[in-house]
Simulated scan of single mutants.
Amino acid sequence: MTTEQRLLNAAKDLILEHGLINFSMSDVPRACGLSRACCYQNFRDKNEILAALCIEEVQVNIKAIQEQRFSDLIGTFSMVLRPLIFNHLKDKDRLALDHVFAELLALIHGLPEKMNSSFKAWFRVH
């Protein structure tokens, strides 16, 4: 597992355990036994970690749709955090997040109409 993935897993666990309000970037490296410097070498700030969590989750959803494993779809971070953090992201992170969401929505629009309607409701796509 890469250092970046270890940090993301720790961040995810911390958010799920303590909530987003109590999430602190300084807790992330401690939770996975790494240094603060290591954390900042991989992520500039808290928003970059949150963006990475959103992107990771959308990529998991894309794969689940492609493999027709619809019960594996998740919305823990991407559906809640994207609107909250989007305006606070650097351009590079906004573009990356937009790209994966566009890919996900294109997959949803390509599904048969009955499934497409269910996904639109689930993702609140209008």
Rank of each mutant, 00 (worst) to 15 (best):
A52H: 04
R30Q: 15
R44M: 07
C38T: 15
A51K: 04
A51V: 03
E56F: 04
I49A: 08
C39W: 03
C39T: 00
Q41M: 06
F23I: 01
L50P: 02
M25V: 05
L53G: 02
L50A: 03
Q41L: 05
L14D: 05
M25F: 07
R30L: 14
G33H: 12
I49Y: 05
Q41A: 07
C32D: 13
G33Q: 12
N22W: 04
L14K: 11
D13Y: 04
G19W: 05
I15L: 12
A51N: 05
A31V: 01
I49R: 08
L53K: 02
L20Q: 10
C39F: 07
P29Q: 09
S26L: 12
C38A: 14
R30A: 14
L34D: 09
P29G: 09
D13T: 08
C32H: 13
D45P: 13
N22R: 15
I15S: 06
I21E: 15
H18A: 06
N22D: 13
C38P: 00
I55W: 02
C38I: 01
A37W: 01
E17M: 07
S35D: 11
R44W: 05
D45K: 08
M25S: 14
E48W: 04
E48C: 02
L16C: 06
I15K: 11
I15C: 08
L50E: 01
L14R: 11
A51E: 01
A51L: 01
L20C: 07
L53S: 04
L53Y: 01
I15G: 06
A37K: 12
L34C: 07
L16E: 12
